Simulated assay, not measured.
Amino acid sequence: MSVHRDVKKVTTHILQAMKSRGEKIAMLTAYDYSMARILDAAGVDVLLVGDSASNVMAGHETTLPITLDQMIYHASSVVRAVDRALVVVDLPFGTYQGNSKLALESTIRIMKESGAHAVKLEGGGEIDESIKRILKAGVPVMGHLGLTPQSIYKFGTYTVRAKEEEEAAQLIKDAKTLQKLGCFAIVLEKIPAHLTKIVSEELIIPTIGIGGGGHADGQVLVTHDMVGITKDFHPRFLRRYLELFDVMKEATEQYIKDVKSGDFPNENEQY
């Protein structure tokens, strides 16, 4: 019996059951009501209101500029669209690092003002106090290790993380720390496939991969990349299921042509 097909509402408990049964978890990003309705109707398990909204919705080069207020706006829009999926919201840069009191305040605002189901934080042992406070308040936490885009200026590049033995060992240690603290799942971004396998096998909680190979318990992509709305992003891990940029551009060109020629609207398209 498939957990995915039978469940009416995905919870953190359901995700754990899916890992236990070896059933993969499908996660995508969503930032607005209309897109979230489509993804939820399709049966996606988890919707991540990612700080990647900073890139794909606002056009920023990094995830750093997006604010807590903006994340709450996007999360509220998504929550209103969803019947089935678990909605997880990124805590944006500057709302939790180094200050566990601020982390809790930021989380409470997200949960109260958006109605989301969980939050996601980037980092390992260095943010343990923030995670502890949030969990004590009863809010589920998803971890995020490997390439953590909020630390892009520290890394200096978006290249694969944890290729060296020391960083790989630290990632495994951090993953176990996050599990021990009580995180319900961990995103593993752009790490070697063999390391994803090790972490996924050693953890009881689910792992969600992006650019980490097929050994994770689930996968996540940015929806705008997956359906080809973004045009100039071609990482190895991305599979484009549509080329919506081209489809929408062609439709728009046809609309412009029809308006200019007087073909639109015709007699059946008026009152």
Rank of each mutant, 00 (worst) to 15 (best):
P92L: 12
Q179C: 10
A169D: 14
P92T: 12
E129D: 14
T63L: 11
L48A: 01
Q97T: 11
K19S: 09
D83A: 10
S200W: 03
G98Y: 06
L221G: 00
H215Q: 11
V87Q: 06
K190Y: 12
L203P: 07
G209A: 12
D263M: 14
L15Y: 03
R240F: 01
T252M: 15
Q270F: 09
D225G: 00
K154C: 00
I172T: 06
G156D: 09
P192I: 06
D90L: 01
K8I: 07
K101F: 15
I134W: 04
H74E: 05
G218N: 08
E129N: 12
Y241R: 08
S34F: 15
E243L: 11
V49Y: 02
I152C: 04
L86A: 06
A30W: 05
V247F: 07
K120T: 15
D45Y: 01
P265D: 13
Q219N: 10
D258G: 03
K154A: 06
D128K: 14
L181H: 05
K173S: 08
A216H: 00
T63W: 00
K257H: 13
V89L: 07
K190G: 04
V247L: 04
G115C: 07
L135P: 06
L28V: 01
N266R: 11
E253T: 05
K120Y: 12
K176D: 11
L121Q: 05
G94V: 15
I172H: 03
I127W: 00
S130A: 15
C183L: 09
E202A: 10
A169G: 05
Y73T: 10
L178C: 10
G43T: 08
E167H: 13
D90A: 02
T63V: 14
A118R: 03
D40T: 14
T207Q: 10
E113I: 04
V222G: 01
V82Q: 05
G138I: 12
V82I: 09
T223Y: 01
H224K: 05
Q70W: 11
D90K: 00
G211V: 08
F233G: 00
A53L: 07
I186R: 02
I205Y: 08
D174T: 08
D45K: 00
I38E: 13
I38D: 07
Q219H: 11
I256P: 05
M71R: 01
T223S: 01
V259S: 11
L135Y: 05
K249A: 07
K173P: 04
A185Y: 02
D128I: 13
C183K: 03
L15W: 00
V89I: 14
I198T: 13
G22V: 02
P92D: 09
G228S: 08
I208M: 10
G124E: 05
